[in-house]
């Protein structure tokens, strides 16, 4: 163990190495580390913000859904009401239409009855004439009995 100039050589080497490390190694690495730390912190903050935004969006979605449901219910109620009204209106219309048809039918029936009656009356007259002819066995003077026959026909 003897001391010699190695001591000085080592000291100079040491100082040079520390200088180099201080100048070219430590700052870039620390800079990168700091930058990455910042980047990670930003990333975490962004993810936190994203989560928060998602929560907000979910809330908004729920609100919209609820509103939509409410409105749908409202629309259904209104539609049901309207349907009821339509049915009622239809009932009223149908009733009046039915009555109208009924009256028309009745009128027609009356007409038919009258017509049949007239027809019948004519036929009865001719039958009566034929019958009377047979009974009398002679030609009945058409003109002489016209007045009588008409009276008979009117009676029937």
């Amino acid at each position: 163990m003897n001391f010699n100039a190695t001591l000085i050589g080592q000291s100079i080497t040491f100082i040079v190495f520390v200088w180099f490390c201080m100048k070219f190694i430590w700052p870039p690495i620390m800079h990168a580390l700091d930058e990455r730390r910042k980047k990670i912190a930003d990333g975490l903050a962004a993810s936190e913000r994203g989560k928060h935004e998602q929560e907000l969006a979910e809330e908004r979605a729920t609100a919209i859904l609820r509103e939509a449901k409410d409105r749908a219910g409202e629309i259904i109620v209104r539609a049901e009401k309207r349907a009821g009204e339509i049915v009622d209106e239809a009932k009223v219309d149908a009733r009046s239409e039915g009555e109208r048809l009924l009256t028309a039918a009745r009128a027609e029936i009356d007409q038919e009855i009258n017509r049949a009656r007239e027809d019948l009356r004519g036929r009865v007259v001719s039958i009566a004439l034929a019958g009377a002819g047979k009974v009398l066995e002679r030609e009945v003077d058409q003109h002489a009995h016209d007045e009588l026959l008409n009276k008979l026909a009117a009676e029937i």
Binding site: F17, C21, F24, I25, P28, H31, A32, K39
Partner: peptide, 15 residues
């Protein structure tokens, strides 16, 4: 050797 190895890492240090 130490300076070279660490300098290599320092040069390529990225985020």
């Amino acid at each position: 050797l130490f300076l070279w190895l660490f300098r290599k890492a320092a040069k390529t240090a990225t985020t």
